[in-house]
Amino acid sequence: MTNNLLLTVTGPDLPGMEDVLARTVSQHKARSLSSHMAHMGGRFASIMFISVSPEELKGLTSDLTSMKNNGVKVQFDRMDPAALPDHESHLLMNLIADEAPELVTDVSRLLGEQHIRISEIHTDTIPAPYTGEHLQSIQAHLYAPDGTDVDTVRERIESLSPELILDISPG
């Protein structure tokens, strides 16, 4: 029986962090089921969902924990695969709107009210064509319960602003 773990790794943005992390997981014959790695503000962050055999678990956790000598923090969370939802649709959302501090909060609230989870979200501020004014861009991967009416989701989000450009499509 394998162990399913969610690894959260944060630390300084050292060269080769991705390689060290991926190689350590691989050396212990763990399977990476899903992962996200990012560099922001001089920091490195990774979230990995892995599966590892009981025989390799102790060595893997020991090797990853030893990374703290370089200022890296590693957190291990055991995952129960039976607890993961299996009746979901994947959606992609792309949104551009006038910059507003509450936009991400409002979108998150509207999605949550419809039992839609955000798997991954990227936000950015971009210049508007011709005017150079600031626009806010949101790209998100979403998990929606099967049978979710995408038109209703779209209408609810579009109600936030008349100047909003939105695309929601199957992902």
Rank of each mutant, 00 (worst) to 15 (best):
residue 1 M to C: 11
residue 1 M to L: 13
residue 2 T to M: 15
residue 2 T to P: 14
residue 3 N to Q: 14
residue 4 N to L: 11
residue 4 N to R: 13
residue 4 N to H: 14
residue 5 L to C: 03
residue 5 L to K: 06
residue 7 L to N: 04
residue 8 T to N: 08
residue 9 V to C: 03
residue 10 T to C: 02
residue 11 G to T: 03
residue 12 P to E: 12
residue 12 P to M: 05
residue 13 D to G: 04
residue 14 L to C: 01
residue 15 P to W: 06
residue 15 P to F: 05
residue 17 M to V: 05
residue 17 M to W: 04
residue 18 E to R: 15
residue 18 E to C: 15
residue 18 E to H: 12
residue 20 V to T: 12
residue 22 A to Y: 03
residue 25 V to M: 07
residue 26 S to P: 08
residue 29 K to F: 06
residue 29 K to G: 08
residue 30 A to P: 00
residue 31 R to I: 09
residue 32 S to F: 10
residue 34 S to I: 08
residue 34 S to V: 06
residue 34 S to D: 15
residue 35 S to V: 02
residue 36 H to L: 14
residue 40 M to Y: 13
residue 40 M to D: 11
residue 42 G to N: 06
residue 42 G to E: 05
residue 44 F to K: 01
residue 44 F to H: 03
residue 45 A to I: 09
residue 47 I to K: 06
residue 48 M to S: 12
residue 51 S to H: 09
residue 52 V to H: 00
residue 54 P to S: 07
residue 55 E to Y: 09
residue 56 E to H: 13
residue 57 L to G: 01
residue 58 K to P: 09
residue 63 D to W: 03
residue 64 L to Q: 03
residue 65 T to P: 00
residue 67 M to W: 07
residue 68 K to S: 13
residue 70 N to A: 15
residue 70 N to Q: 13
residue 72 V to D: 06
residue 76 F to V: 02
residue 80 D to R: 02
residue 81 P to M: 06
residue 84 L to M: 14
residue 89 S to I: 09
residue 90 H to F: 14
residue 92 L to H: 11
residue 93 M to S: 01
residue 93 M to E: 01
residue 95 L to R: 04
residue 99 E to Y: 14
residue 99 E to T: 13
residue 99 E to W: 10
residue 101 P to H: 08
residue 103 L to G: 00
residue 103 L to E: 05
residue 104 V to G: 04
residue 104 V to F: 11
residue 106 D to I: 04
residue 107 V to I: 09
residue 109 R to I: 09
residue 110 L to Y: 05
residue 113 E to S: 08
residue 113 E to Q: 12
residue 113 E to H: 08
residue 114 Q to K: 11
residue 116 I to S: 07
residue 116 I to W: 07
residue 118 I to T: 10
residue 121 I to F: 01
residue 121 I to M: 13
residue 121 I to A: 07
residue 123 T to V: 07
residue 123 T to P: 00
residue 125 T to G: 08
residue 129 P to Y: 01
residue 130 Y to W: 12
residue 131 T to L: 06
residue 132 G to W: 07
residue 132 G to A: 04
residue 135 L to P: 01
residue 135 L to C: 02
residue 136 Q to M: 13
residue 138 I to D: 08
residue 139 Q to G: 05
residue 141 H to P: 00
residue 142 L to P: 02
residue 145 P to K: 05
residue 145 P to C: 01
residue 149 D to G: 05
residue 149 D to E: 11
residue 151 D to A: 11
residue 154 R to E: 10
residue 158 E to D: 09
residue 160 L to K: 02
residue 160 L to W: 01
residue 161 S to I: 03
residue 162 P to D: 11
residue 162 P to R: 06
residue 163 E to Y: 14
residue 165 I to K: 09
residue 168 I to Q: 01
residue 168 I to H: 00
residue 169 S to I: 07
residue 170 P to V: 05
residue 171 G to W: 10
